[in-house]
Simulated scan of single mutants.
Amino acid sequence: MRKIAVIGSTGSIGTQTLDVVMQHPEQFVIEGLAAGSNIDMFVQQVNAFRPKKASIGSKQLAEQVAPLLPADVELYYGEQGLIEVAAGTDADFVLSAIVGSAGLPPTLAAIAEGKTIGIANKETLVTAGHIVTELAKQKGVKLVPVDSEHSAIFQCLNGENLNEVDHITLTASGGAFRDLTRAQLQNVTLEDALKHPNWSMGAKLTIDSATMVNKGLEVIEAHWLFDLPYDKIKVLLHPESIIHSFVEYRDGSIIAQLGTPDMRVPIQYAMTYPARLASASKRLSLAEVGKLHFREMDEERFPCLRLAYECGKIGGTATTVFNAANEVAVARFMSRAIPFMQIETIIEEVLSKHIPVAKADLETIQAADRWARETAALL
């Protein structure tokens, strides 16, 4: 039986992870749960799974939920609570599914304790990839990808020699606005942006998909997960989201991973790797699908993807600032303070004001993150 801690338990990935646990109660036990502000769902989860430790976003929320939880559950809050749940239980697998750079401290703490990490929080590697991967190497910890694209590449590389890879290709659905011109994007609304055509995801991730920031973050994450240079990481528009990603080898052979758009499949694979369990997810019928479509990525249409590649190649704090500026810009868009197109404008302007620091330590990264957020909030 595998012991699991979930950071970000009330989010889209977190809830689907717990769904997998419920499908296989003989395989998994929940040791820790951490959530942000969704107290109703958090209370339900803690009472259903009775973890040893649980954490909520703030002291005020902790005081509010404490009377509603089992007496034997240790309750924490804030960043320290995330760290307790990630590193302070008997869990051998920690699913890092919290949104944003807040996932970095608990992930580092879990790695330091030697726990296998399921990486669903791409911002952790985008913000401090060199620190995370170096610590994982030192501790002998495996970083198992959960994102469907990275899980696909992970599976396509299984048993293969990385030196024989010509390139990898991450597929992109294109998000809610994939068929709109830049002129048509001028008047789109928050409600429009949240209508992802294929996947059921959280609000922030859905908006990142519409701007193509999400794919840019995935490119940077792939660089760190698979130790590949950026010129070996490509992106291809694939509206159906059936081929989740693929690897082309130097002999011209292409190995792809296919499946229906259901995040429970890569989540479960990460939790059981290298074994595979039966899944209740709908099976893929290529006869039903009939045709698959692909389009080259247009970086003029999706400038945030171009910015992500540029930041990745620069390295250091450039990717930290890219991520932080985007988080603030998306939050402002979600509060209806700015129009959709201003997200990319804010990111580019913040980057233009930043002087990157190569091989930055954690303190420098955190300072760059704070500066980027403060700057993005004023633009």
Rank of each mutant, 00 (worst) to 15 (best):
V94P: 02
P70C: 08
D72N: 14
V94A: 06
L69M: 03
G81D: 03
Q80I: 13
P70T: 04
A66D: 13
D92P: 00
L82H: 12
I83T: 07
D90G: 00
V94N: 05
T89V: 12
V85G: 05
A86S: 10
A91F: 10
Q80L: 14
P70F: 06
A87H: 12
I83M: 08
V65S: 08
G81R: 03
G88T: 01
L75D: 08
L82Y: 13
G78H: 03
P67F: 02
L69I: 11
Y76V: 02
A66S: 15
P67Y: 02
A71I: 06
A87I: 13
V73G: 08
L75I: 15
A91N: 09
E84M: 14
E79W: 01
A91R: 06
E79Y: 01
E74A: 12
D92S: 13
T89I: 11
Q64H: 14
D92E: 15
T89R: 08
V65E: 10
I83C: 05
Y76S: 10
D90N: 14
L82Q: 13
A87T: 12
G78V: 04
A71F: 00
G88R: 05
V94E: 05
A91E: 10
A87R: 11
A87D: 13
E74V: 03
V94K: 07
L82V: 00
L75Q: 09
Y77M: 08
V65A: 07
D92F: 01
Y76N: 12
V73Q: 04
Q64M: 14
Y77S: 14
F93K: 01
L68K: 15
L68N: 07
L69N: 01
D92R: 02
P67T: 03
E74L: 05
G81L: 06
I83H: 09
D90L: 09
Y77C: 14
V65I: 12
E79P: 01
D90V: 02
E84I: 14
F93H: 10
L75M: 10
A86M: 08
Y76G: 00
P70M: 07
P67G: 04
A91P: 09
A87N: 12
L82T: 06
D72Y: 00
A87L: 13
V94G: 05
E79N: 08
P70D: 04
V85C: 07
E84R: 10
E84C: 11
F93V: 15
A86E: 05
L75T: 10
